[in-house]
């Protein structure tokens, strides 16, 4: 499956977090986060729950506001300006743990909505593009159904297609398989692996699927208590973890 050998990330920086800090009230969730992601790079973020990994990637498209430090996406600094936020969101796709499909719209309408209303594409063209992406996630036959009629795995694949329809430069995955029944995890991971293998897409994925991390990640980042504790390429990360906390985390995962 892996194309790590053939894949090359360019040197151009896609995402840069500089000294980023975030508080929820008095609670310091993210502490001095420094992270550089190159264009086309595929990053897996793991760590115990409550370590701030979801919060960190949610800051990148401003679903959460950071209070200190800089976030630069595709050369553009994320500020409070609404126009600026919307521009960055057009370039950054996101897949959520609970899919968050729009239940009142069909699968096809879910996919076409943003291209039509945000990018002002003609409906015909948007629908054709959406069908192309639905074929890529292998559910073109469900296009006219409503999300409530699909299984969890199918819904998550629709959610991936919906994000891809905006042709984003970056895809953020926020625990995409955590809410799925075990037998549906594979179909979603397969789609994600395929997407990674095609190359070109910058991917940041918060996940507990260590197999996925080993297969596709260029780099694994381990977070705990709001900090990045360790980052390394997957082979080193899993076989030779440096930090005590990382070793503990990995030993706990592998035991089960």
């Amino acid at each position: 499956m892996s194309t790590q050998e053939t894949h090359e990330a360019s040197d151009q920086l896609m995402i840069e977090l500089k000294e980023m800090n975030k508080w929820y009230g008095d609670f310091h969730v993210l502490k001095n986060i420094n992270l550089q992601v190159k264009k086309g790079e595929r990053i897996v973020i793991c760590g115990p729950s409550g370590s701030g990994k979801s919060t960190m990637i949610r800051c990148i498209n401003r679903l959460e506001e950071h209070q200190k430090g800089d976030i630069i996406v595709n050369g553009m600094e994320l500020t409070n300006d609404l126009k600026n936020i919307e521009t960055i969101r057009k370039d950054v796709g996101m897949v959520f743990q609970h899919f968050n499909l729009f239940p009142h719209l069909t699968v096809l309408e879910n996919c076409c909505l943003a291209p039509i209303w945000v990018r002002k594409e003609p409906r015909k063209q948007a629908e054709a593009a959406a069908m192309k992406y639905l074929e890529r996630v292998k559910i073109p036959e469900q296009a006219l159904k409503f999300p409530g009629q699909l299984s969890g795995g199918q819904q998550q694949r629709v959610a991936i297609a919906r994000s891809l329809c905006m042709n984003p430069d970056v895809m953020l995955f926020d625990e995409p398989t955590s809410a799925l029944d075990p037998e549906m995890i594979k179909e979603v991971l397969d789609v994600m692996i395929e997407l990674a293998d095609e190359g070109g897409m910058t991917m940041l994925c918060v996940t507990h699927e260590m197999g996925f991390a080993k297969t596709v990640a260029d780099r694994v980042i381990f977070m705990d208590a709001g900090q990045i504790i360790e980052e390394n390429e997957p082979h080193e990360f899993f076989n030779n973890p440096q930090h005590e906390r990382t070793q503990l985390f990995l030993s706990q995962i592998i035991q089960h």
């Binding site: 401003r62 969101r89 950054v92 959520f96 609970h98 968050n100 943003a114 209303w117």
Partner: peptide, 17 residues
């Protein structure tokens, strides 16, 4: 659910849309 607001935001739909 909050997720609906977030999904709409993440797609770049503005407030009114």
């Amino acid at each position: 659910p909050k997720g609906q607001y977030e999904a709409a935001d993440a797609l770049g739909l503005g407030y009114w849309k």
